[in-house]
Design a protein around this nucleic acid. Structure first.
Length: 417
DNA sequence: CGTGGTCAAGGGCCG
DNA sequence: CGGCCCTTGACCACG
């Protein structure tokens, strides 16, 4: 079993993905963006390896306009060295990758041109994973598409168009239930009919259910569509955002609900892809809750969270310090509950300044007078009700100048890196 | 220089 | 037919 996350990271340095607007896409610009994005992907891999996260979804934007004629680059040749190295790293560290074309890739459209573009888009995604030299356990996840007023005709069209795909695409393709049209029952029918592995998505099923069957039962059903050559069964897990509209992903994973979900299928070995706004942070959280039982993992987490928690809630900061005193215990749920609660709290101006001054303590002896003056100016801005970003940017710069690894890894800087 | 506002490839659905 | 889905990065205008 592995737990992973999708596409983007929080608090990881040099791990952003760049793109451009179509009207500005020259080959020079595109090549520069691809090079930068592959470097970011490499940094994300390094982070994942360090955190023992073995499941990751690569953003479709990794190659800007990867399946659009505006991008004529033979990127798989131009960046062969980088791609090969990324693939070797993936295999060496037993990572499993996937990709997930968006809602605009519609294989079952009645419009021939739309189907054609969908095929080209699937070919692009396949080519990317092929360029890394990865086997077919590394999947491409697709939704079924539209209904067009006749669901069974739409399903037939999906199956027909699926069979027209090249074998190397079909080997990677898996299908997922969606939140509006094709529920898990529909997708399982398609999967067993056309021999396509099925990903069960719990939130989509909650929003667009077939009947009242529990998650574990659908996971058991979906497991029958996975063959050995496809690798471990995969599922998607997410939670409803409390305030946003139905189907919106939560900010972070609530461990209580996650563990209830997780413990409901103790005998089924699955890979769980989390879909959640705080990305890698929830992946580490869930891995710590599901797989680990030593206080050192919570201490490692605390090193990253502490200044951010201090900024939001000095009370919770103290509570967590007390919680971690017993080195024989493993209070993982309580630990993250205190962190989540703190991060939901809007920070007071005094707490923002206090946390900033804690971090400033690393530099105040060694820095020059001008830096000190500038820091004090940013603090005054916060005190006057202004944003904390300039203060944090200055502190980050100082951390980089002094190469303070402990601080550079801190989530305190997650919004300014 | 920092920041706040607006736009962006793609297709389908709904009111 | 227009708005919405879903998002963050790019870009521009402004102080």
């Amino acid at each position: 079993m592995t737990i992973g996350y999708a596409c983007l990271t929080v608090g990881v340095h040099d791990a952003t993905f760049r793109t451009c607007r179509k009207d500005r896409a020259t080959t020079e610009t595109l090549a520069r963006l691809i090079k930068s994005n592959l470097a970011s992907l490499n940094n994300i891999f390094d982070y994942n390896i360090k955190q023992n996260i073995e499941l990751f979804r690569i953003s479709s934007d990794i190659i800007p306009f990867g399946s659009h004629p505006v991008n004529p680059l033979r990127w798989w040749d131009l960046f062969r060295d980088e791609l090969t190295a990324l693939g070797e790293k993936t295999r060496r560290h037993n990572m499993r990758l996937s990709m997930h074309p968006g809602q605009y890739t519609v294989l079952n459209s009645p419009r021939e041109d739309v189907v054609q573009r969908a095929k080209e888009d699937l070919a692009y995604h396949t080519q990317f994973l092929d360029a890394l030299g990865l086997d077919r356990r590394h999947k491409i996840v697709l939704h079924i598409g539209g209904a067009y007023g006749d669901k069974s005709a739409a399903i037939e069209r999906f199956i027909k168009n699926y069979h027209e795909l090249d074998d190397n695409i079909k080997d990677r393709l898996v299908i997922e239930n969606d939140d509006k049209i094709f529920n898990i029952h529909d997708v399982l029918l398609i999967g067993s009919e056309a021999d396509i592995p099925v990903i069960y998505d719990n939130l989509h099923n909650q929003v667009n259910p077939y009947d009242d069957r529990a998650d574990a039962q659908w996971i058991e059903e979906a497991s029958k569509t996975w063959r050995t050559k496809d690798g471990r069964q995969k599922v998607h897990y997410s939670q409803q955002h409390p305030d946003k509209k139905t189907g919106s992903h939560s900010e972070t994973i609530d461990l209580g609900a996650f563990l209830t979900f997780y413990n409901a299928f103790p005998n089924t070995d699955v890979d769980i892809m989390l879909e959640v706004k705080d990305k890698n942070l929830s992946a580490v959280k869930c891995i710590n809750a599901a797989e680990r039982h030593h206080i050192k993992y919570l201490e490692q987490e605390w090193a990253k969270y502490k200044y951010l928690v201090l900024e939001h809630s000095p009370q919770n900061y103290q509570s967590i310090r007390n919680l971690l005193k017993d080195k024989a215990a493993y209070p993982v749920v309580a630990f993250y509950q205190l962190i989540d609660e703190a991060l939901q709290t809007v920070p007071e101006i005094g707490h923002i300044i206090n946390a900033g001054q804690h971090v400033w303590g690393y530099f105040k002896k060694s820095c020059d007078a001008q830096t000190k003056k500038r820091f004090e100016k940013t603090v005054e801005r916060v005190r006057a009700g202004g944003t904390a970003l300039p203060m944090k940017k200055l502190l980050l710069k100082e951390a980089q100048r002094n190469n303070e690894i402990y601080l550079l890894d801190s989530l305190y800087f997650k919004d300014v890196i």
